[in-house]
Structure formats: structure tokens, C-alpha cells
Design a protein around this nucleic acid. Structure first.
Length: 955
RNA sequence: GCCCAGAUGGUGGAAUCGGUAGACACGAGGGACUUAAAAUCCCUUGGCUUCACGGCCGUACGGGUUCGAGUCCCGUUCCGGGCACCA
């Protein structure tokens, strides 16, 4: 009897053994080099894992196992990002404590993960919602509170240093309140009155990356701008370092570019503009920011952002009413409206500014197209060379002065930064003189003109060169329950830190997860949420006396708080004294390989880099960048199936019977049946076979379908419409990995997920092909057993052919793993297996390395075969086979081409082979002889790799 | 609008540095074994043309460089992602 591949038994057996033998447990082993592999930890949602989740985990597991076999001490931990909105929303609906549902979901995730055979060291698991974990989130926050960013040193420094500086300068106020306010302007974690993205439906503020197209990322609810006092992190202070760091890490170019865009560095100049005929107000000048200093001669007006404090100061009494009206209008508009609708609006303030270069008096407007948060909130408008200024000038009939030779500005502005400058100045007396020098840019290129203007402005004290960043500080508080509480109390209104030794401040119990009746966040429902300063403990709210007992912060931290430094905690997860010990941090340093989705490009991956840089400044983190190499796995999409219900009926029409019409306005297809519109309804993927609906099955699914009438096509089938969409429970297109494990085994699942295509690409899940992977594993298995079920391995000498098949595979698989193109390794495995089967290879010296090679991909079958081969140690430590080129030496001429007296060969030859040998080989190869006969070899050029050019001439 | 990444059979995708395009797999069709099914194995499978041998055309489109281009250069179209009144 042939030995059957019983994957269920094999996988169960090894899952148990791995647990018993603690196969994947790692310690700081200084005798080995370290390698740190990390997956973005999942948020444990109620829906469980679908086949898309493990994609990245499998990819990183393969790499981790490969590194381990190469002799590295590999840290490969896993945990849960377990604070989050869904659990809280669920709690509001059901009254169940979010911790309960979260832990239940975690158990389910763990069960699913365990089936796939990952090499995670579970002894290092972290959960962001447990006090021993968020202790260190709170601790980091306090450190940020007690630090400021020193612009000169470009790093975080203790706040005491700043206080000393103020004291030395004599600017340190006596009043406690004033001290607090002064320091707030410098602390890295600070309480700030800022415009925030307020989402009324979620009842909380959101960070910029949580708002997409003016609506909340989660739920898609409208977001408005609101001025609120919030905790913020001074991420913007690190802009330059965040930008510079990108050049030192191996991330995909596209994600680096996304971050560069988000940081948005722009070099420009700030220029002082004097007000003309100062209308008796305190202010006599304002500052504008421009990247196009070269266009100073084309300025025809100035514009202030509506939110700018300057508006109030410059507005003349005559224009006051109009300006107030306009500000009121701007406030009435939501973020979304402003983003979609770019109609030109604005109003004249009545004031004029003086162009310091030309001395011209230009009107000052207020318009919403200028943003308060960027630059100085004031601009100089050059309608000829900026499309927004152009639209504004046309609307308000303001002059347009072209400054670039050949630029036609009669229809649109000329925004491009190329060309030769003219009209700058138009004539000599149109340029102001400073210290005997006046500016002239005519004839210069734009680039030269910018530099020249900057120099002029700087040298004559008209302004300064300035770099601006688009990156904003992160809003760090949320008006939610299920998050880290702030270790902060308000001592007579002054935010004060709860002493470090009293951390963690645990999340209090509440009976309701909704905001209070007075509109306070959910923590307002807690009755024991006051800080007793004297006794250093949390006490009942009723004891608040504003002398010794003070209210504690009601906000909680946002989702990214817990995920910003979790990689450090994995190094030393049970440490009660520190976030991470010096020893562990020094050993593990930073993450060598990070795998996760690219959707975190402007969120987690920026915050985490910022957080790490801060901890690096503190000396806690040992590397400036937390993630050396980043791989972004693509999404696995699902095939959604739609059935069509005739509107206002319970009749479902087979898709092929419908008439299709494209609606341009809605940008989608509409379907009609006998003139009546039919609406799509999701059908569960499990009820569809190909594109045919199992009508009986769907009838049992919901009562709605149970009573429905299904109109079938001529073949008696109900055809569904299909579309590729993101895999999601609500789209009923989820494929569960458990089912695949049950049917084919984890090894097949692992192999197949890699076989689907390049890791970084999004691709639809398609079960076609999984049979092929399973079949391969069976073939691979059968390579080791004879027809009686006996192991075939013996000590025989491998043939040259055997070694060639093996070493071809070693080479391919090794480079593929390094380059993360696992999908191309799998065909190579298939070819090698077929070759070795045909060669009837029984040699241990081939079979053992073969098992070692498949270990990262399919660890279960590998362990089983490794054991069968007589090893008592785990295959995880089987050394990675070394590639030896000599086994590939068997010359075959792949492609001879003759031209111009040159012959080019492609040969399978080692790169370091001596030239004479190459020549000999080439000349004796049958194809070579055909071309070289009667020729004299003049020169042989060996291109590294295995291509040679042979230059010949007639003998 | 700006930036980034793509486009190869019915499908996923191979093709190393510019060297036989379509490896490998899926799907489809045909066959063997079998009472039958499953499993397994074998053959065919880019298009057009030919009884056949073969020939011609083919890597989104149009040019270019080269003895030779899927690959390099210029331009165009389309799809995906990011940013977007950022001065």
C-alpha cells in the first residue's frame, strides 16, 4: 500500500508538538545574530479571519523560518490591537462590555491562526487594552508631555531645560496658570485649542488620516471643522527627520512617496507686507509665505484666510459688515462642501498692503481658498502664474501681470516653473531701492529668479527664507470609552500628570458607554474617577474638593496610541519596570522586516516613526527608524455575487434576462426587466457555484429569500452578477481559511496563498488552482515513499542529474525568498519534484536538503518527513542548504546569434570559471561549432552572469 | 490638476543585465484506467492560415535606438493607488 498523505493527522500532531516543545520560543541569545520579523498586529473584529488576513502572516512566516534556518535568532511575535470603535459600538448596542467581546474575538482569532502553523512566539503576545501594556502607552505620553522639541538640536529635550532657558531670559511668568500656558506651546504632547475634525455621528474628533474625502474613514459619517481644546502630539516638529529618515529605509518607493506628500515640505520665503495708510489699528504689517518669490513683480492683491486673526485687525469700518457676513458664510460650510465646491468666493477688507519690491499698493481680500493652517494664513496673489489667484482675479476683475516670456495669460494662468522672467521690473522706477540696490530679475530662469529674490529679501531685511511642512500635529484625544485613559488630572484647571509610579491609570468601569446627558464623553459616566493628590489614588468623584481631590481627564487616547510602540514591547513584554529593558532593546534593536497593508501609510506608519524617534531621543529605542524593511501585502479581494430584485416586488430575476443601461450621472449600471428597474442584493458566496445560484440554498438563508419568486433563464438556471470587491462580511464574499485548512490542510493553504501572485499585489481569491497546489504536495510526499509505503531514502551517491535539480531549486528558492517573490518559487518546486521523481532519486543527500527547502512554506509536511528521515530535532533548525554552482555546470547553448562578426552565447556556466575554460566549452558545444567552424576567436567578453560575447573573424 | 505604480493568452502569472515571449499552474477540450464515480495518468490549448510540413501576426497604442525590444528612450490611451484650493 502506498503511503497516503494524511495532512489532518500530520498537522494536528505537529501543532501539539510545537506547543509541548516550545519550538518557537526565543530569548536574547547573544551567540547568534538577531533578526526581527513583525506583522502589523490585527484588530480582532467579530467577523474572524478571512483568507486575506493570513497572506502577510504567511509571507513573513516563510521569511522568519528561512532566517532561522540560516542560523539567525528570529523574533517573530504576534499580538492584538485591541482598542477600537467596533467593540465600543457593539457595546452601546448590546450593553456588553467591550473587553468581553474583544477577548472573545481574540480567542477566535487565535484558534484560526493556530491552524495555519505560524512560528509565532506566543509567550510574547501583547494586547493593547490590558493595563500592563497601556501602562507604557501612558508612560510615553507623560514623557512627551514633559519634553519639548529643541529646534537647534533637532531632538526632544526635557521640559526643565526650557524652563531654565525662560528663567535665564527672564520670561518665566510667576503665575502658575501662565506657566502652564507657556509650556503648552512647547510640549510634545500638549493641550491645544485647534480646529479639529469633529464627527457628530461618532461623537468624537478624528485625526487627519481618519478623515477621507470629508467623511470619517470608519462609517463614512460627515465631518465638520470645529475649534476644540484637545490633546495633540507635536508630530510636525519631527517633519524634517521624518522626511530624512525615508532615505535610510527599504520601503517601497510608492509608500515613501505617499509619506513625502503627506509631510509636504516646501521651501519658500516669508515676506513682511506693510499696511498702507494704517487705519489706526495696532497691526502695521503682516507676513505672507510664498514658494514663488520670483513673482513678486506680478502681485496685484493679497489674500487672508477667513480664520486668520489678521482679518479682524485690518478690516476697515466701511467693510466690516461685508467681512463679518462673509466669515459667517464660511463657517456655515462643512469640510466636505469646501473640498467639493471650488466656487470663487471672497470679500475686500478695505485695507491695502504695500509690495516691498515695487512699492505698489494692493488690496487685501479675505477668501476661503487660503487656508489658515498652512504657512502664515496669508498670501500674495500672482494671478498670472497661479491658477487659484487667476480665478479670483477674473472674478473680482483684478489686474493680471504676466512675468514669463511667451506666456499667454488671456485664458488661463501659466503655473509651470519654467521659462525666462520678464516685466520684473517693467521699468527701472517700478522697483524699490534698498541700500542702493534694486531687484531686477529680467532674463533669468525661474529657478535663478527665486534664488535671487530670496537673497534680496534676506539681505535687505524684508523677510526670511522659510521651509514649511504640510504635516500637522496629530489630534490625540477621542471622546470615546474604549481606549487608553489619560494619566492626567485637572488641578484647578491646570492639566497635571498623575505620578509615574502610580501608572497605569486603569480604565474605569461605567454602566453606560454613551456620552453623558450633559454631553461629556463616556468616561463622564464613571463615578470613581477623581485623583486624590495627597493619597495618590483614584477616588470617588463625590470627593472632589479642588484642594486635594481633582477630576481626571475624560478623554481617551486614539487608536494609534497603542500601536505606535508595540514592536518595542514585544522585545520585553512582561517587564513591569520599563517599556523595554536596556538589554532587550540593545539586543533586538529594531524591526528588520515589517509586513502589513499600505493603507497605514499616512497613519500608523507616520505615528509609529514619530513615536520611535521620540523614544530614540530619550535613549529608549536604539534605532532612529523602527522598521528597516517594509513589505506591503496586497489585499485579497472577494467575488461578490448579486441577485436582482424587481423594484417593489419580491421577484428576483436571473442576471442574463436583464437589460443594462449605463447611468452617466451615477457612474454605474442600472438593470431593467420589462421596463422596470431591478436592484442588486448581495448573495452569499457559498450559495453560488460558478455564476449559478443555488436557489434552494438561498431560500433557506433568510425568510426574505424563502418567500421570494426566482425567475430563471431558458436553461432553468438563476445567473448572478459578479464583481471583485474588498473582502468583507457585509458584502457576503468572505472565504474562511478554516474551510480551506479542513479540506486541503494548512500547508496547501500556505502554498496556495503565496501562489496567488506577488505579495504586494491585490488579487481576487479564486479557488481554482488550489487543487494544483494540493496535488503538488501529494507528489512531493510520494517522492519519499515507495509503493509499499516504505521510506526510500538511502545513503546512495546522488547522480549529477539529482544534484543539478536540487541546486537549481536551492538557487531559485533562496533568491525568491530574499526578494519576496514566493509565487515564482512554487513552480520551481513543482519542476524539481517532477524531475526527481522521474530520476527515481533516493539519495538522502538530496532528499534532506529538499525537506529543508520546503520547510518555510509547508512546515507540517516538512516536520513529518524530517522525522521519518530519522531526525529527532525540529526541522525548523535544519540548516538552509548551500548553493553550489558547480552542480549546474553542464553546458548547453541556449541561443546562438550571429552578427557583425560577433557570436553571442547563453551558457549555463559558473561566473568565476576561467576564460580559457569558457572558450573551450563554447568551442566544443555543438551549437557553438556550427558558428565557430572556420573562424578565429579574436576576443571573448564575459558578462557577469552567464552570457558571453565571442568576437570572431575568418581564420 | 500634481505625484507614484501598472497594462503580456480564457485566468493567475513566467521570461535573470536587451537574446527562442507565453515557463509553471488553473480553466477548457480530448483520451486511458473504472460497472460507475472519485483519485491518478497521457495528449491538445495565443491568433490567423495550411490536409500536412510550414508560414504570417502577436506583450495597450504610435514612433525611436539596436544585429535583436515585453524589457531601453519619446509621445498617447486606459486602469489602480496617493495627494489635492498647501500659495
Amino acid at each position: 500500500m502506498a503511503k497516503e498523505y494524511k495532512f489532518r493527522e500530520i498537522e494536528k500532531k505537529w501543532h501539539q508538538k510545537w506547543v509541548e516543545q516550545q519550538t518557537y520560543r526565543v530569548t536574547e541569545d547573544t551567540t547568534k545574530p538577531k533578526y526581527y520579523v513583525l506583522n502589523m498586529f490585527p484588530y480582532p473584529s467579530g467577523a474572524g479571519l478571512h483568507v486575506g488576513h493570513p497572506l502577510g502572516y504567511i509571507a513573513s512566516d516563510i521569511y522568519a523560518r528561512y532566517k532561522r534556518q540560516q542560523g539567525f535568532n528570529v523574533l517573530n511575535p504576534m499580538g492584538y490591537d485591541s482598542y477600537g470603535l467596533p467593540a465600543e459600538q457593539y457595546a452601546i448596542q448590546t450593553g456588553q462590555h467591550p473587553e468581553k467581546t474583544t477577548f472573545r474575538n481574540i480567542d477566535r482569532y487565535r484558534e484560526q491562526l493556530d491552524k495555519i502553523g505560524f512560528s509565532f512566539d506566543w509567550s510574547r503576545e501583547v494586547r493593547t487594552c490590558t493595563p500592563d501594556y497601556y501602562h507604557w502607552t501612558q508612560w510615553a505620553f507623560q514623557k512627551m508631555f514633559n519634553s519639548y522639541f529643541d529646534e537647534e538640536l533637532q531632538k526632544a529635550q526635557p521640559i526643565e531645560k526650557l524652563i531654565d532657558k525662560f528663567k535665564a531670559e527672564g520670561t518665566w511668568p510667576a503665575d502658575e496658570q501662565a506657566q502652564s500656558e507657556l509650556l503648552m506651546q512647547h510640549r510634545i504632547a500638549y493641550l491645544g485649542e485647534t480646529m479639529v475634525n469633529w464627527c457628530p455621528a461618532l461623537g468624537t474628533v478624528l485625526a487627519n488620516d481618519e478623515v477621507v474625502n470629508g467623511v470619517s474613514e470608519r462609517g463614512g459619517y460627515p465631518v465638520e471643522q470645529k475649534k476644540m481644546r484637545q490633546w495633540c502630539l507635536r508630530v510636525s516638529a519631527y517633519s524634517q527627520r521624518l522626511l530624512d529618515g525615508l532615505d535610510t529605509i527599504q520601503w517601497s518607493e510608492s509608500i515613501k512617496e505617499t509619506q513625502r506628500n503627506w509631510i509636504g515640505r516646501s521651501e519658500g520665503a516669508e515676506i513682511q507686507i506693510k499696511l498702507a495708510g494704517n487705519p489706526g489699528e495696532s497691526e502695521d504689517s503682516f507676513t505672507i509665505f510664498t514658494t514663488r518669490a520670483d513673482t513678486m513683480f506680478g502681485v496685484t492683491f493679497f489674500v487672508l484666510a477667513p480664520e486668520s486673526e489678521l482679518v479682524d485687525k485690518v478690516t476697515t469700518p466701511g467693510q466690516r459688515a461685508a467681512v463679518d457676513e462673509y466669515i459667517k458664510y464660511v463657517k456655515s460650510r462643512t469640510e466636505r462642501e469646501r473640498m467639493i465646491d471650488h466656487t470663487v468666493t471672497g470679500v475686500f477688507t478695505g485695507a491695502y498692503g504695500i509690495n516691498p519690491i515695487t512699492g505698489d499698493k494692493c488690496p487685501i481680500y479675505v477668501a476661503e481658498y487660503v487656508l489658515a493652517g498652512y504657512g502664515t494664513g496669508a498670501i500674495m496673489a500672482v494671478p498670472a502664474h497661479d491658477s487659484r489667484d487667476y480665478a479670483f482675479a477674473k472674478h473680482f476683475n483684478l489686474p493680471i501681470i504676466p512675468l514669463i516670456e511667451g506666456a499667454d495669460v488671456s485664458q488661463e494662468s501659466y503655473d509651470a516653473k519654467e521659462g525666462t522672467v520678464m516685466n520684473s521690473p517693467v521699468s527701472k522706477d517700478k522697483s524699490m531701492e534698498y541700500d542702493g540696490e534694486s531687484l531686477c530679475l529680467n532674463g533669468l530662469s525661474i529657478k535663478e529668479a527665486i534664488a535671487e529674490t530670496k537673497r534680496f529679501v534676506k539681505e535687505h531685511g524684508l523677510g526670511r527664507v522659510k521651509v514649511n511642512y504640510r504635516l500637522r500635529d496629530a489630534i490625540f484625544s477621542r471622546q470615546r470609552y474604549w481606549g487608553e485613559p489619560f494619566p492626567v488630572y485637572y488641578k484647578r484647571g491646570i492639566p497635571t500628570m498623575i505620578p509615574e509610579e502610580c501608572l497605569p491609570v486603569e480604565l474605569p468601569q461605567v454602566d453606560k458607554f454613551l456620552p453623558t446627558e450633559t454631553g461629556e464623553p463616556p468616561l463622564g459616566n464613571a463615578t470613581k474617577w477623581a485623583w486624590d493628590e495627597k493619597n495618590k489614588k483614584i477616588v470617588e468623584n463625590s470627593l472632589i474638593d479642588e484642594e486635594n481631590v481633582f477630576p481626571i481627564e475624560l478623554y481617551t487616547m486614539p487608536g494609534f496610541a497603542g500601536s505606535s510602540a508595540y514592536y518595542l514591547r514585544y522585545m520585553d513584554p512582561h517587564n513591569n519596570e520599563a517599556l523595554v529593558s536596556e538589554k532587550a532593546a540593545s539586543y533586538w534593536q529594531n524591526v528588520d522586516l515589517y509586513v502589513g497593508g499600505s493603507e497605514h501609510a499616512t497613519g500608523h506608519l507616520i505615528y509609529s516613526r514619530f513615536w520611535n524617534k521620540f523614544l530614540f531621543d530619550l535613549g529608549v529605542s536604539k534605532k532612529e527608524e523602527p522598521f528597516q524593511r517594509l513589505i506591503n501585502q496586497g489585499m485579497i479581494q472577494g467575488w461578490s455575487s448579486f441577485v436582482y430584485r424587481l423594484r417593489d416586488t419580491n421577484k428576483f430575476i436571473s442576471f442574463d434576462l436583464l437589460e443594462e443601461q449605463y447611468d452617466d450621472a451615477k457612474k454605474k449600471n442600472l438593470y431593467f426587466y420589462q421596463g422596470k428597474e431591478a436592484d442588486p442584493v448581495y448573495a452569499d458566496i457559498s450559495m453560488v457555484n460558478g455564476n449559478v445560484l443555488d436557489v434552494e440554498k438561498i431560500r433557506q438563508w433568510t425568510p426574505e429569500f424563502g418567500q421570494a419568486e426566482f425567475i430563471l433563464n431558458a436553461n432553468g438556471q438563476y445567473i448572478v452578477n459578479q464583481a471583485i470587491e474588498k473582502m468583507s462580511k457585509s458584502k457576503y464574499n468572505v472565504v474562511n481559511p478554516d474551510d480551506i485548512c479542513e479540506r486541503y490542510g494548512a500547508d496547501t493553504l500556505r502554498l496556495y496563498e503565496m501562489f496567488l501572485g506577488p505579495i504586494e499585489q491585490s488579487k481576487p481569491w479564486d479557488v481554482a488552482g488550489i487543487d494544483g497546489c494540493h496535488r503538488f504536495l501529494k507528489k512531493f510526499w510520494m517522492l519519499f515513499w515507495d509503493k509499499d509505503g516504505q521510506l526510500v531514502a538511502d545513503d546512495s551517491e546522488p547522480t549529477a542529474e539529482n544534484m543539478k535539480s536540487l541546486h537549481k531549486l536551492i538557487k531559485k528558492v533562496s533568491t525568491d525568498i530574499e526578494e519576496f517573490s514566493y509565487n515564482t518559487s512554487i513552480p520551481a518546486f513543482m519542476v524539481a519534484t517532477t524531475e526527481l521523481t522521474n530520476q527515481k532519486c533516493h539519495s538522502r543527500r538530496v532528499l534532506e536538503p529538499l525537506v529543508a527547502l520546503i520547510t518555510p512554506f509547508c512546515p507540517h509536511i516538512a516536520e513529518e518527513l524530517w522525522e521519518a528521515l530519522g531526525h529527532s530535532t525540529t526541522v525548523c533548525d535544519a540548516p538552509w542548504p548551500e548553493f553550489n554552482e558547480k552542480f549546474l555546470v553542464e553546458t548547453t547553448v541556449k541561443m546562438p546569434v550571429q552578427f557583425n562578426g560577433k557570436v553571442r552565447f547563453t551558457l549555463d556556466l559558473p561566473a568565476d570559471m576561467a576564460k580559457e575554460e569558457i572558450e573551450k566549452t563554447a568551442l566544443t558545444a555543438p551549437e557553438g561549432q556550427k558558428y565557430l567552424e572556420g573562424m578565429q576567436v579574436v576576443k571573448i567578453v564575459v558578462v557577469p552572469g552567464r552570457i558571453i560575447n565571442i568576437v570572431i573573424k575568418p581564420a
